[in-house]
């Protein structure tokens, strides 16, 4: 099994030009140089613009069936003309926290596999972060229900979160990625999380949900602590990797 420093071993990476100087020269010898101004993606963007202009939205927000008075009832509890925007962002956060919980399941597996590599961090700490993501999902779910909306709906923003974070899950779940690499992915996820909670709090205040905003601020405090912790772990493993001296050793 590899350790974190193996992610940056010197070896036979073949992807760059310098790996094959003769072949690379042969390739470049037949390349006709083009002026910088022609080397752009504008023909691609022309096609993209056609599609963008004709595209339908990913989907819609459903009328809450359970609440008396439906969306009007939710609208009465929410200031502003389009209460569904807030519901969409709540659903986005719920999807993100659920996905984040599963991301940390993958982080925990790496942590256990590489036990002892990260000094000053315990499995309990990582598990606590994971459980807090799950509790934040529960917080959002309750908030959606309080507005009379359906927490099981995949709203457009919730849908998009799944697309956007798919890479995080792939990177963390890959057995070949080191603990350092996995934590780097977790850090990226946490930074997006913090920015998103900040925006959600602003929205909650704007729609008059002060109680919700207060609970979300408490969640944001914890999310900021996650960022600090995970960033610290990443830095610690980076320093360990860059430090010359004894290797943690494996035979080749």
């Amino acid at each position: 099994m590899q350790d974190s420093t193996d992610g940056t071993e010197i070896g036979r990476n073949r992807t760059g030009l310098q790996a094959s100087p003769q072949l690379s020269k042969e390739m470049n010898d037949v390349v006709m140089p083009v002026a910088a101004e022609t080397a752009n993606a504008s023909p691609l963007n022309e096609v993209r613009l056609l599609y963008i202009r004709e595209a339908d939205p990913l989907g819609s927000i459903p009328q809450p069936a359970a609440a008396k008075g439906g969306l009007k009832s939710a609208a009465k509890r929410l200031k502003g003309e389009r209460p569904q925007v807030f519901i969409d962002k709540l659903a986005e956060r719920l999807a993100y926290e659920r996905g984040g919980t599963r991301l940390y399941d993958a982080v925990i597996a790496k942590f256990i596999a590489h036990e002892g590599q990260l000094q000053g961090a315990s499995l309990q700490e990582v598990t606590e972060i994971r459980d807090e993501e799950a509790s934040h999902a529960a917080l959002i779910r309750t908030s959606i229900e309080q507005l009379g909306a359906d927490p099981t709906v995949q709203t457009p923003s919730a849908d998009l979160v799944g697309v956007a974070t798919a890479g995080f899950l792939q990177a963390a779940a890959d057995p070949r990625t080191t603990l350092a690499q996995t934590l780097q992915v977790a850090l990226a996820a946490e930074l997006v999380d913090v920015a998103s909670w900040e925006m959600l709090i602003m929205m909650a205040e704007r729609v008059g949900q002060d109680g919700m905003a207060k609970r979300f601020r408490a969640a944001l405090v914890r999310e900021n602590e996650h960022v600090a912790k995970v960033r610290g772990w990443c830095e610690s493993l980076s320093i360990t990797d860059a430090k010359p001296g004894e290797r943690t050793g494996r035979s080749h």
Partner: peptide, 13 residues
């Protein structure tokens, strides 16, 4: 179950 297995967790508010 609706909302995934994580919906079984109770909010720790």
């Amino acid at each position: 179950q609706p909302g995934t297995e994580l919906a079984r967790k109770v909010a720790n508010l």
